[in-house]
Design a protein around this nucleic acid. Structure first.
Lengths: 148, 148
DNA sequence: AACCTAATTTAGAATAATTCTAAACCTCCC
DNA sequence: GGGAGGTTTAGAATTATTCTAAATTAGGTT
């Protein structure tokens, strides 16, 4: 059964890469496997590169960056910027939002249904909405607010 | 009248800096003047440094960064990260949200009242909410979505 | 199966944003 | 007006990311 799942997922990824005009190369397939074989994930480029290296998949950091951006363009991933110099790639591309813990740097999904964003103002003239990001920033209760 | 306003604002800033344990130095006061003398602003560190230089206020980029972070800690500014490597400091610290134009990089305030975020899920155990950020990403209508 | 062409990967340099360091310089208080 | 400690600064260092040009590989063709 898990075999079947993996096969299906790989087929989907293959199809989606093809659809985006991306060749299913060894590196892209290996990274896709790391990204999509387990449940929803939030990874940085650096982290994914570390995982690949640990799994004895030789891939350069530049390729990891390229691949993450290509997957994002193909709709397989979504990028979430939480702090200057810290951005995650989220394998969940459904409509949803995030908790971001400022103390630990952890990111956590919030189902789109859990938040009602009512009565959106219309976009500035000449522009159209591409996405709505809601980030609920939290910190550990005993942590002191970031100050000087 | 504008004189009065400026005076009041400077007094407020002075008081708030003192309250945060920050000495009102020449640099901090000059940067505060640039930031708060006009209506709500969104500036990057680099931009503010450019303005200071243009206004013949010699201040180093490091000090601009320090000051922006200290002001943020003191509640005079709010930082908004919109993209990896692009973050703005917002002089509006009231409850509100943002439009971010991916085509131009422009940031625009949305009054807090214009969006209703209903039914917030509770924060993960052991943590408390520090802020809720809503960013509505827009792009110019003729612009093509970022792809490979 | 060998071949060709264009896409892809790569190491390493380059860039950009930000932070650090240690010395020089102010602010405040006596 | 002197001194202690907070502040500023130039420049180096760090971090995240992108670029470059050369080597490799995928996928169609014969």
């Amino acid at each position: 059964m898990s075999l079947m799942q993996i096969t299906n997922q790989q087929a989907t990824i293959l199809a989606r890469l093809r659809g985006a005009g991306l060749r299913p190369t060894r590196q892209r397939l290996a990274l896709a496997k790391l990204l999509f074989d387990s449940a929803d994930r939030h990874v940085t480029a650096e982290q994914l590169h570390g995982e690949a290296t640990a799994a004895a998949i030789p891939v350069s950091l530049a390729t990891v960056y390229n691949t993450l951006h290509q997957f994002t363009g193909a709709g397989l991933l979504r990028e979430v910027v939480v702090e200057p110099g810290r951005s995650y790639f989220d394998t969940n591309v459904d409509d949803h939002h995030h908790f971001y813990c400022e103390s630990t740097g952890a990111l956590q999904d919030i189902p789109g249904t859990a938040i009602t964003v009512g009565q959106l103002p219309h976009a500035p003239p000449g522009s159209e909405i591409s996405r709505v990001d809601v980030i609920i920033r939290v910190r550990r209760q005993n942590a002191r607010p970031a100050q000087a």
